[in-house]
Structures are given as structure tokens and as C-alpha cells.
Amino acid sequence: MRIVLAGAVCLAVAVLAGVVYEQLGRYRAMRDFPPPGRMIDVGGGRRIQLDCRGSGSPTVVFEAGLSIDGSLSWAPVQPQVAAHTRACSYSRAGLMWSDPSDAPYSARQVAQDLHTALARAGERGPYVLVSQSMGGLYAMNFTQHFGDEVAGLVLVDPSHPDQVARVAAFMVETRSLQSRIGVALAWSGLLRAAASALLSQAPHQTAHDAQAVRAFAPKSMRTQLMEGDAMDDTLAETRGFRSLGNRPLVVLTAMAPYTEAELRGMKITPAQGTQVQAIWKQMHAEMAGWSSRSVHRLLPNAGHDIQFDDPQAVIDAVLSVVTTVRSDQGAAPH
């Protein structure tokens, strides 16, 4: 009985220490990494972090992919774009500084949050939407519902509404049990401790930004897991909208061969990886066809996170669309 009691006491002390570590980590995250830009009230007691810089029209709006970086996904790109026009990045509900939402998750809700945040911050269209990976689905959904305000788009290695069906012969999507356990035990400090060891600094990412992402990881990873679980619904929501009219569009496709780690994560062989990449390229060619004025660019040295691997390619694509929109509207930079 004494051994059992001693073990129980040790366990309780360890759990308490973990809880204190996690609460202290949350306090330090807010103290050491204040939100860039502003926190915008979008109603229901929620705030969305919105970082707008520069001046000029059209306003570029960045939408992150399925990641935990939030607005920091675009840190290597936004300042250079903001030197030429207004540029806004933001963190979706539950990512980084933004408050989570109690509303049922949907791409429509994501679009509504962004639209409300922009409007209440005093930002006005026309907008050029720049999105990466799954963010491409959100950008298409935003265009579907608020199309009058969208003048052009840049899709950075975007998700395709039919991607799951198209690659089903090569790979089956799985959800990491370890990730679920980590998120479920975030209150204990275990996820925070693991994030410090597992999350590496990306190319063209500052040490400060990498530290900020780690500091908010226990919160952001919960949202990331939820967004991943809703992937099929998000794909379905955007499947029926594929017409961008004559809006200028640039589609960027990452063509660097998959790394060994990526192949292991997808559970495919190098040969299968080559086939999957060919399908990915074809889907992006189809997406370029969604606009009558589009450019499809292949980037042989960039991986999926093109904004980190080759930020200049993204900057050039964005500014090309900005220039076209200005020409269409007869608007000079101001």
C-alpha cells in the first residue's frame, strides 16, 4: 500500500507540474510573441488576428494552408508585396492568436470570418487572394460567396477538389494517432515539450517566427487536426465552383521530387511518388483552366511550401496579378 500510495503521489506531482508548465507556456507565448497587426472583433466574443501592411490597390489577402503557422505562413512574402500594395495576412479561428470558434466548422464559415474581419478592420476590395495548399479551397469558397470583391487569385501548390479520389490508387489518407493523443493531452504540457523538439525552422523563416509557432503549437495543432478531419467536407464544399471567369490567375506547382520523409509520410514508393506528382501537375493544369486569363508555372526546385522554399516565385506571381488588376481598372499605384 505504501508503494502504491507513493506512486500515486509521484504521479499527481508530475501531472501538476505538467499543468503548471503548460499554463506558464501559454502566458509566456502571449507575453513574448504579441500578435502582429490587430485583433479584430468578428462577433460572438471572438477575435481574429489580422496583419495589414502597406498601401495601394488592389489589396492582397493571404490565406494559409493546413498548417499551424497562421499569418506567419506568409512572413517571407508579405513584406515584399506590401512594398508595392496593401497586403493582409491573418490567422484562421483557433490558429496562433485567433480565438477558436464554437460554430460548426466549414469552408463557408472560414470565408465569413475572413470577410467580417476585413470589413470590420476597414479593409476594402478589390482583393487579390493568395492561398497555399488547402487554403486554395478556402480562397475558391471566398470567391464563390464574395466574388464581387475578388479581382484575381494566386494559388500556391493548391489542393484540388478531386484530389483524394485522383490519388486513391496510390495512397490512403490516414490520421496520426500520435497527433490525436498529443492534442488530447495538451493540457498536461506534453505537446508543448514535444513541439520544441519536433518543429524545425523552415527555410527563409526567422528564428523569432519559428519560436512563436512553437509557443502556440498546443493551441494551433488542435485546430489543424480539426481542419484535417473536415478535409472531405471542405473538398465537397468547393467541388461545384470552378469558374473564375476572366480574373487573372496564377497557379504555382511544386515539382521538387518528394523527400524520403515525405514518401514515408504518404506511405508510397519513389516510383509511386513520381506518379502522384504527375497527377498533381495535371490537376493544377486543370485549375489554371478555371480562368480565361491564367498562367501555370512549374517550380522544379520547390517543395509543397513554396512560400518558404522559393518566396521570390510567389512574390513575382502576386505582383504580376496586381499589375494586371491595376491595368484592368485603370488604377495607378497610390
Rank of each mutant, 00 (worst) to 15 (best):
Leu249Trp: 04
Pro58Cys: 11
Pro58Gly: 13
Gln272Gly: 09
Trp290Lys: 00
Gly265Met: 03
Asp229Trp: 10
Pro35Phe: 08
Met171Asn: 13
Gly43Ala: 00
Gln49Tyr: 03
Ala8Gln: 01
Phe142Ser: 05
Val4Ser: 06
Gly56His: 01
Val183Ser: 14
Gly54Ala: 01
Asp233Glu: 14
Glu173Asn: 05
Pro126Glu: 12
Leu249Gly: 02
Ala195His: 07
Gln201Phe: 03
Gly330Ala: 13
Arg47Cys: 03
Arg124Asp: 11
Ile3Cys: 03
Asp162Tyr: 04
Met255Val: 07
Ser106Thr: 14
Arg214Phe: 10
Ile315Val: 15
Ala29Asp: 08
Val251His: 09
Thr269Ile: 02
Met255Leu: 13
Asp328Pro: 08
Thr206Lys: 01
Gln78Trp: 04
Thr259Glu: 07
Val325Leu: 03
Ile48Tyr: 08
Ala195Ile: 09
Asn246Ala: 12
Thr223His: 05
Ser101Ala: 15
Thr323Cys: 02
Leu298Met: 13
Ile306Ser: 07
Arg47Trp: 00
Leu153Thr: 04
Gln224Trp: 12
Pro100Trp: 10
Ala317Val: 07
Met231Ser: 08
Gly265Gln: 09
His204Ser: 12
Ala230Leu: 01
Pro300Trp: 09
Gln109Ser: 05
Thr143Asp: 15
Leu185Cys: 13
Pro36Ile: 08
Arg28Asp: 10
Ser133Met: 04
Leu50Ser: 09
Met287Asn: 02
Met134Gly: 10
Ser133Glu: 08
Gln132Cys: 08
Ser320Gln: 15
His204Leu: 06
Ala261Trp: 00
Pro248Val: 09
Asp41Val: 09
Phe241Ser: 07
Leu225Lys: 05
Ala186Glu: 09
Ala107Leu: 15
Gly136Phe: 02
Lys219Arg: 15
Pro76Cys: 12
Gly147Arg: 04
Gly18Phe: 09
Val164Leu: 15
Asp209His: 14
Cys10Phe: 13
Ser67Ile: 13
Thr234Phe: 14
Val15Leu: 15
Val295Trp: 04
Cys88Asp: 02
Ala29His: 07
Glu22Gln: 15
Ile68Trp: 03
Arg31His: 07
Pro76Thr: 11
Ala169Thr: 10
